[in-house]
Design a protein around this nucleic acid. Structure first.
Lengths: 403, 403
DNA sequence: ATGAAAGCGCTAACAT
DNA sequence: ATGTTAGCGCTTTCAT
């Protein structure tokens, strides 16, 4: 190995100038095909790779995108984050980007991390997860003009974001039924925003990818209704979380559409198994003034809650006295390994597609719209992906024993 | 913002030469304290950050370490990988290193990824997970002299690696009982290898960090023995996996030490819930020629198997005839969210420490042993960590309802 | 202890 | 379509 193979080595080997080699790499159309091939052969033979450092120095761009990995249990995590990260890495690679990780506890610390990442490493862009109303991070990034995409829609900028839970009713989805990969982006007129100026609402109008939670809980609820249940309960998180409200809304919409009265059918608790169990016990024991019994099925905002509910449901089925009540159906959300393990029907987020969407959106920002083709990776024949800045994906209901 | 803040800006501001600024950053001891402070103040005021690209170009080092993120379900994954990655990122940052992700399916593809990462990005080192006997990756890296650490000991090079499961008996550990952070590295003489030449066994002698699985299953088994169980069964993976044999060994050692005959007490099946359940049913129904009943407790090589066993145990407890047998205790391995959710006692790997260990070992390789202090991060007063190239960490038994 | 000079490998701008 | 020039920001000699 006699020293590094540089562009000069290649140029010499192919008997062209260094600039021509550079052109073959960065602007092949400028080079005559014949020369181009000769250069490419030389690159191949010599095993040449461009030095990212040198390129970065010249262009100011690192071809690195960053994503935060929080401590376990913080926001999107566990196998969910794992799958998302894998999707990001896989989608970024073909476009020549790499994913780097960073940690931060709290928005302020995260902004400090941005300064560092941007200042020292010339990071090209960020993928943010766990965005929330009043998020200081998005403001900061937007103000600086740093390219970023969020996984999680911009709830602030979109006070009425119920694209998916709105008009069209979700059809039943079993595991066997394939889901159009990128078709999830609803074709609502609200989504065609490319004509709008860049910075509306103080930079709030950034690209995002999200999963239509309401659609998921609606599909879950409709499945239970179709199975003959009428009083379908809901166990969700305390009011205040946008994601939580979204998931609740799908359930509510489905019941309203079926003409079922919602009152007394829901509980809002913290996202823990024990809380879910308590809420379910409470709900299942309900008998109102008219003698109406509690729910016969439960839709939950998470697998944790659903797992608790499942325990309560099992206990309920084998109540004292030995009378076996008909089984209480339970459906969870997120399709975590826990759900798989215990046979819990659950709403599964298309994380790979979400990740690919984030990368595609981000790269469009970075490369200035040339790489449109990247959005078509899954080949779902969706020719007109151009210009869209938001992607709302449909989850999938994975049916198992529990419902 | 009038252009980038470079070392020249700082030099000018602090009225020193550029070189002095560089020295303040890279070799502070060379600069008179008074000058040093002036320069540091200037750096602070101007918000200067070194350009990694420029530095990298000069030094050939990127301060980037790479780790693979496989598709879900592949090897170490789910929340386990998640926690490990977080630990890596967190440990690498203070030493000035960043973690970049890559994917690859299969060893060959992974080697191709190395070429790319090394050639284009000047990656400084790798953390490998899921190593296996005959691993082509470690050979490749070792042959090229690329610094790397594996999470998972080098089974090939160490045919008798039972440091932890050997002599000393694990004491009982409850969740409340804290575990020395870095004390896990067993002080067995086998570990003091710094005197040995670098490349023994064809480069097989690379640094690694691992968790003492045998210790974990032994602790689990001893806990059950202490609770009065005698016939403690084991459900493990099919022979052939080094990790699987290690975990089995801990169980076997504990039973042997207690004078219990192992025969008829184990089943080896694929790592799936259903298989675990089947195996447990099988085991629990056993009655041998002498009329000895099946096991009264089960130690499992994974939480998946344990979950299945737990189901079988519950069913066994409420056998037809209504006679409530005494409850079958079950202990799993990995302390996954599933275990937490269902109240399964499980052996928990110290992933944060493992990650920190990987980073410390790798950085020692990279920075040539100057950064010894990094190993002491947890401040456990273990002054003499220097030179150790292997870290065998003790897991922790997290006690819950199931055992 | 501090300063001056050189050059890492690349690409943008400007020739040809 | 191809070649020439310059310089990105840093650190490593070497000199003072």
């Amino acid at each position: 190995m006699a020293g590094r193979v540089t562009i000069a080595t290649v140029a010499h080997h192919a008997r062209v100038s260094r600039q021509t080699v550079s052109n073959v790499i960065n602007a092949p159309q400028l080079v005559r095909p014949e020369t181009r091939e000769r250069v490419r052969a030389a690159i191949e033979v010599l095993g040449y790779r461009v030095s990212q450092a040198a390129r970065q120095m010249r262009t100011g761009r690192s071809r690195l995108i960053a994503v935060r990995i929080g401590p376990a249990g913080d926001g999107i995590n566990g196998s969910v984050l794992d799958r998302f990260l894998h999707g990001l890495t896989e989608a970024a690679a073909p476009a020549g980007y790499r994913v780097v990780l960073y940690t931060a506890t709290g928005d302020d610390a995260e902004i400090a991390a941005y300064e560092e990442l941007l200042g020292a490493h010339d990071l090209d862009g960020f993928v943010l997860t766990g965005t929330h109303p009043g998020d200081a991070r998005t403001d900061w990034l937007a103000r600086r003009g740093v390219p970023f995409v969020t996984f999680g829609r911009n709830w602030e900028a979109q006070p009425e974001p119920v694209f998916g839970g709105g008009e069209h009713s979700p059809t039943q989805h079993s595991k066997a039924q394939p889901e159009p990969a990128f078709g999830g982006g609803e074709h609502s007129p609200t989504l065609n925003r490319e004509a709008q100026p860049e910075a509306v609402l103080g930079g709030g109008e950034h690209p995002w990818v999200d999963v239509d939670g309401a659609w998921g809980t609606r599909a879950a609820t409709e499945r239970l209704l179709a199975a003959g249940h009428r009083r379908v309960g809901f166990i969700g998180w305390p009011p205040g979380s946008a994601v939580g409200e979204d998931r609740r809304e799908g359930w509510a919409a489905a019941l309203r559409a079926a003409g079922v009265d919602l009152s007394g059918l829901e509980r809002r608790v913290d996202d823990r198994v024990a809380e879910g169990e308590r809420a379910a016990v409470d709900l299942l024991g309900t008998v109102d003034l008219l003698g109406t019994a509690g729910p016969s099925a439960l839709v939950c905002a998470s697998d944790s809650l659903a797992l608790g509910a499942l325990r309560a449901a099992t206990a309920h089925g084998t109540a004292p006295g030995g009378i076996a009540s008909p089984r209480i159906a339970v459906i969870g959300f997120d399709d975590t390994p826990v759900a798989q393990a215990v046979g819990l029907t659950s709403v599964s987020q298309p994380l790979t597609e979400a990740a690919a969407g984030c990368v595609a959106l981000l790269i469009r920002l970075l490369d200035g719209g040339d790489h449109d083709g990247d959005l078509d990776r899954e080949g779902e024949g969706e020719g007109d992906s151009g210009g869209r800045r938001h992607l709302l994906l449909r989850p999938r209901l994975v049916v198992r024993d529990s419902g």
